[in-house]
Design a protein around this nucleic acid. Structure first.
Ligand SMILES: [Mn+2]
Ligand SMILES: [Mn+2]
Ligand SMILES: [Zn+2]
Ligand SMILES: [Zn+2]
Lengths: 147, 147
DNA sequence: ATAGCAATTGAGAATCAATCGCAATTGGAG
DNA sequence: CTCCAATTGCGATTGATTCTCAATTGCTAT
C-alpha cells in the first residue's frame, strides 16, 4: 500500500462524511505514516513540528477521532495514563503483557483467544469493532529479581 | 468476610508498609464497602460527603493507590476516559464488552480465555498479577438500530 | 503514660492534557 | 467562479489529578 494510496483512502473516508481533505490533515497523515510503532499525541506533534510544517496542536487533537474512525490508527495501551496510537497498516493486531515493575511491554497474539472473543460476542449479539487486552504482572527479569 | 475483617486487613497492609491507619482512610474504606458495582472517584467522593463525614478530595486521590496495592479495589474499564474502580471482594473477576454507541457495559467471563492467558504468560516467563480485556463494538440494540 | 517523629491531612495553587469559542479562511460541490 | 459549510489557529478554558506546605496525629520506643 503506497502513501498516495493511503491518502486517497483517507480522502474518500472524509468525502463520504461530507468532510474536507485539508493540507493540515495531509500533514498529519504523512507524519503518522513516518512513525513506526506506538506514539503519543505529543510524539506525533513533535514529528510534525520538526518537519518544518507548523500546524496547531488543536488541529491534531481534532483530527485524531477522524483517523480512528477512518481506520488509519488504533489505540494501544500505554504504560502511563496517556493514550497511545499506532497506524493500523503494517502493524498486525496483538495484545500486551505489561511489567508493572520495569514498564516493559511484551507483544503477543493468541489465535485461540481471538476465536473465543468472537464466540463471546456472538453469544451476546455483540458486534465487535476491536479489543484491547493487557495482562499486568512481572516480566521474567523482574520476577526473578524479586525472588 | 465482615467489614471489621476487611478493615483489619487493610490496617495490616498499611502497617507492613510503615503507613498509618487514619480515620480518613477508615471513612474511605467504609464508603467503598457501601458501594456495589463500578464507581468513579467522583462517585466515591459523593458517597463520603453525603455520609456527613467530610474529608478532602485530595485525600481520596492519595488513598486510591493504597487501596489498589492493598487489594481492596481494582480498576475496571469505563465508557468515558475516566478510570473506574470496584471493590474486589464480592466481585468476581470478569471482562467487558463496551458499546461505543450507547456506552452500555456487558460483563462476561470465559474460562478458556483465562486459561490461555495463563499459558501465554507461562511461555514468556511472565508472572501475571491481573488483566483487563475490553471488547469495543455495538451492543445488540445499537447494532440493529444502525442497520 | 509520654515523647518524638515520620506520616498524614486540608485547602488551595499548580499541572497538564484535552476541549472550546470565535473570527478569518478555504475546500470542493454545483 | 460562487458560495457556504467545514476548518483552522490561537488563546482561553475546562476538568481531573497532583502538588505544596504548615498544622496535625498515629505509632513505636522508651
Ligand atoms: Mn487480541
Ligand atoms: Mn478475564
Ligand atoms: Zn519487568
Ligand atoms: Zn449500545
Amino acid at each position: 500500500m503506497t502513501k498516495m494510496n493511503r491518502e486517497s483512502r483517507f480522502r474518500d473516508f472524509l468525502s463520504t462524511k461530507g468532510l474536507k481533505y485539508t493540507p493540515e490533515r495531509g500533514i498529519i497523515l504523512s507524519a503518522i505514516l513516518s512513525i513506526k510503532g506506538h506514539f503519543l499525541v505529543e510524539d506525533l506533534y513533535a514529528h510534525i513540528r520538526q518537519s518544518e510544517q507548523g500546524i496547531s496542536l488543536a488541529t491534531v487533537y481534532r483530527t485524531i477521532p477522524l483517523l480512528l474512525e477512518g481506520g488509519v490508527v488504533r489505540e494501544v495501551p500505554s504504560p502511563q495514563g496517556k493514550v497511545a496510537y499506532e497506524q493500523i497498516l503494517g502493524n498486525e493486531h496483538h495484545d500486551h503483557l505489561l511489567c508493572t515493575s520495569c514498564g516493559k511491554v511484551i507483544d503477543f497474539k493468541d489465535d485461540l483467544i481471538e476465536k473465543r472473543q468472537d464466540a463471546v460476542c456472538d453469544s451476546h449479539g455483540f458486534e465487535p469493532q476491536g479489543h484491547q487486552m493487557v495482562i499486568k504482572g512481572y516480566c521474567r527479569a523482574c520476577a526473578s529479581k524479586n525472588k
